[in-house]
Design a protein around this nucleic acid. Structure first.
Lengths: 406, 406
DNA sequence: CGAGTTTGTTCGTAAGCTTTACTAACAAAC
DNA sequence: GTTTGTTAGTAAAGCTTACGAACAAACTCG
């Protein structure tokens, strides 16, 4: 019997029935699935320090200690590591006059690393950018898709990546790729019909070629992360991407929802309403995409324009088309928004189509079809990040994966 | 400069641009929000050991070490703590003949503690039970609600709790309560209209009276946990509770979804379909509850019986009513199931209504309205836990909150 | 100028997990 | 009956990590 054993035995014994509290109360830990070693804890705290610096910027070690609850000693130690890794720099002493030794201001060296972000979700081209650690775009590039699919499309991803890497002017933190379709956590594109990809290990292919840290995820999930980190949204939101197809990304408690088969957010082929609808390429009638995808909307509007009606007539009937589309979106979203108690829905896509009668009709329909108590919390708006939302989301994935920061 | 600093500085310096990998790659940690101390890590590992014992049962220290990845030494140390706390007991040596020193079999002492579970979700009574650590019901009790609301209803909760505590025959691990309505993480019932509760701190009231660890949560969330822990469902599921109202509980990745205002799963007042529907108490037309709640279904069937039609005719038209209800449920669930990529929907409620044409119509409607690729993964079934689902879910909450086990 | 305040570091300590090495206890094979 | 090899569990030592105490530096304020 060891001394340790004896001590513990007597110190942790519980009082007897019926009034027993266990000494420790596991806060809300559900199903711990892997062991935790001291180094994991250290990494966590390291990220915590980075995180506070990333969000607040320009703080002293003592500031960070107060905010994180760690001691100044521990923060100093972690910061020393971060400085040695060139991630954090000392910015000189704090200016403002107050008692005590002046603080040494720290900040993440936001120009020390760069991120390559790539967006594969557009119909006719792949877009990419070099971004700094703040998610600001430093350089852009694009490559026409020209109908490429399969390995040809992969080659274009690699070519674009190469172009972008050539434009970097600092060490590369990682490469983030937002791809359409169903992507698993290992960066394997399980299915992206438009690109002819099935079980394509895109992450491995890019890594084999360039050797950086690569993260591949669904484009809408990337967009949701961007909206959270850079668009001012909080941690619970749904982003609806309207384009050639319709897809969604869900962020719950700050984390993307992937779904049991990584197909969360694939709402384009959910049937909307109980009154039929147009035939969809998938074979069903009345899928959300038949109401809402940009090709379908633009087609309807062009038919209208070619009809020879007056301009006022065309405008009025265009509005009706957009309102109908918005209502259909609202009908589809209402059960989701209600079931998830979502406070925020964000639209991404062509502003001229979405940002007006369509969005208005969507929010009205949502309110008409969900619980009234809940309406005060419910907002629907266009993204503030425009076309770069997936690129910036790809950067968030890299930041989050490499630094634990976002 | 300390030796430590010098070592770290030189050992963690990164190679130069453009080919940089940071020494550590944060696996998938998102936004660390609090510091982690060694004791937290220890608690986590402690729960990990308990968890493997809870699920597998009857293992040796070496077995646990192999399964968790911890060393035998660490497992021994943790197990000694657990034995001192009376949570784990040695069961003697392993029987089967194999080389080497025979193993000492351990198990959680499943009779060492008991749990009180309470279900407030039924319309006319509160039900409760004493359960063991396996979630088996040892003793039951109930108390007629008799129309009580507000403080009267609270008094009945306390009375029922007292009855149950009197029936316990071992130290009480905690008290779990599944309440209808909107419940926040602190056990405050923000809103439960049927009970006349608004911002009622039920957890505090029960704790003040009995002083145990109390967990209060939404009934459907509790049911979802029960279905996962005891009903054989995996970590992603939606449970739909049909009763006086209609509510749902969502489990994503093994964790309940609470929603931004703790109202996740409140789908009873989502409008279904685009063709009107009956007027709901909430003022809207065609809410899910108007199609599916047991009072409404029973009323419709009774009207039918009183109509003087033949028995065959009544049966046939009853079937039509149930099929219609099932279709409406499917219409409401399709966007949710699609958006979340949910593999499993479980129904809880009166078997005679749900388990037949209704469930059949629901699954068919779901399949007709979601992506075909996804159908192979999609199952819909009745719960296997019957009426005790919320009670047992309440026990899971206590197990998970107190031991990190479920 | 002295008192008080704040910063950041150094030193020693406690906790937690690992590695290494050991003993105990067994089966199998000779 | 002995040897060999395996498995279980313990003991000791060491490393990592975070903490508290103490302190020097540098500033403000009265």
């Amino acid at each position: 019997m060891s001394a340790t054993e004896g001590q513990r035995g007597s110190s942790t014994l519980e009082p007897a029935h019926p009034h027993t509290h266990l000494a420790f109360a596991q806060s809300r830990a559900l199903r711990p699935s892997t062991k935790v070693l001291p180094e994991h804890a250290r990494n966590h705290n390291r990220s915590l320090v980075l995180q506070t610096l990333y969000r607040t910027g320009r703080q002293s070690r003592a500031d960070i200690a107060r905010e994180t609850g760690l001691t100044r000693v521990t923060v100093s130690d972690l910061v020393n590591d971060l400085i040695a890794e060139r991630l954090v720099i000392e910015m000189g002493q704090r200016e403002d006059a107050r008692p005590g030794k002046p603080a040494t201001i720290l900040d993440i060296d936001r120009s020390a690393f760069q991120i390559v972000g790539i967006d594969l979700s557009e119909h006719s081209l792949f877009r990419g950018a070099v971004l700094d650690l703040d998610g600001q775009i430093l350089n852009e590039a694009e490559i026409a898709l020209a109908g490429s699919t399969g390995d040809d499309a992969v080659a274009k991803v690699l070519a674009l990546t190469e172009q972008l890497l050539a434009k970097t002017t600092a060490p590369v933190l990682g490469i983030g790729i937002g791809s359409p379709g169903v992507v698993n956590l290992d960066g394997v594109v399980l299915s992206a019909p438009n690109l002819g990809w099935h079980n394509l290990d895109l992450r491995a292919q890019v890594e084999a070629r360039f050797g950086h840290a690569i993260i591949v995820a669904n484009d809408a999930n990337a967009a949701a992360l961007a909206e959270h980190s850079f668009g001012g949204a909080d941690g619970d939101l749904m982003i609806v991407k309207v384009g050639h197809g319709v897809g969604a990304g869900l962020l719950l408690g700050g984390s993307p929802l992937y779904g049991s088969r990584f197909a969360a957010g694939e709402i384009g082929h959910v049937v909307v309403g109980t009154d039929g609808g147009a035939l969809c390429v998938c074979g069903k009638h009345g899928c959300l995409e038949t109401w809402l995808s940009t090709p379908n909307l633009n087609l309807a509007i062009e038919v209208l324009r070619a009809s020879g009606a007056s301009e006022a007539e065309v405008d009025a009937r265009t509005n009706l088309i957009l309102i109908e589309a918005g209502q259909r979106l609202g009908i589809a979203l209402a059960p989701i928004v209600g079931a998830l108690n979502l406070p925020e829905v964000v639209l991404s896509g062509p502003t001229e189509l979405l940002d007006g009668p369509l969005a208005q009709a969507t929010i009205e329909t949502l309110r008409n079809r969900t619980m009234a108590e809940f309406h005060g919390d419910l907002t629907l708006r266009m993204t503030t990040l425009g076309q770069n939302i997936v690129l910036r989301g790809a950067a968030v994935m890299v930041l989050s994966g490499q630094l634990g920061v976002s």
